[in-house]
Design a protein around this nucleic acid. Structure first.
Lengths: 125, 125
DNA sequence: ACTTGAATGAGAATAGATTATCATTATCAT
DNA sequence: ATGATAATGATAATCTATTCTCATTCAAGT
């Protein structure tokens, strides 16, 4: 059976507080505020488990070697990748139906849109 | 000084014939038709060199661990990733200016759009 | 044709993210 | 409170893409 742990609680809390997709090392840093001794293996274990449980979802972004995660209950949205601080933010708008963009004969099932630039914090500097 | 080699010619020819972004192992397979003994190291060396020379450009796609390349002289466009055969195709249309999609204060410098689904060949089956 | 060193091919080495191992800790049904 | 075992933490191991090493080959200026 499953047992509740302070480590997993802290990892969940990190996502709830961040409100944006997180990399494993970001999760580690954030969750270590609540659980100082937290180890990287535990973060990876729980990222996978929470994904299997349907609480998290893997986010695939261009050019990212590391796998990002976000809460699975979010509605369809896109992402903004800040080229300065390397953080990823949610963009809760969508250009809409893009199936007409594909060549004839191609069947479009989904799409991913990523904006690049500077986030508000980085653009202000 | 630079020397012309059959290997590099074959790699260039692979891109010209394919007309779509290629992974290193695809380049290797295609170029080996012209140069049977071609090694993987030579492919990687030339992908980097041709990129440095401005003939190729790296393509970053979501969820791709491997680095794709395409000819650098292509105009702005997007990509279609076939989930069946895993090939990537060019999509020569663009939804246009997307800067309004970003949150206030965010500065959009570029965007990447990827369509997912089945390419014509795979959808027909 | 000769010579120089750019380029290659094979395999070892590297790099980075993720996963496995295993002794230890701690949850929770009893 | 106790015991079974789920979960953890530290570290080793793995995995895969890419780069390095180095002896050998070959392009091209002479």
């Amino acid at each position: 059976m499953s047992r509740r742990t302070a480590q997993r609680d802290a990892i969940r809390a990190a996502f709830e507080a961040a409100g944006r997709p997180l990399k494993p090392d970001e999760v580690l840093a954030l969750a270590q505020d609540a659980v100082p001794g937290l180890g990287a293996a535990t973060v990876y274990r729980n990222l996978r488990r929470l994904t299997d449980d349907g609480w998290l979802r893997a986010v695939n972004l261009p050019g990212e070697a590391t796998q990002l995660y976000e809460r699975a209950d979010l509605a369809h949205h896109h992402h903004f990748h800040c080229e300065t601080c390397d953080r990823v933010y949610d963009v809760h708008v969508c250009p809409g139906d893009l199936s007409h963009l594909a060549p004839a004969g191609f069947r479009v099932a989904a799409h991913e849109l990523v904006l690049y630039g500077s986030c508000a914090a980085c653009a202000a500097e």
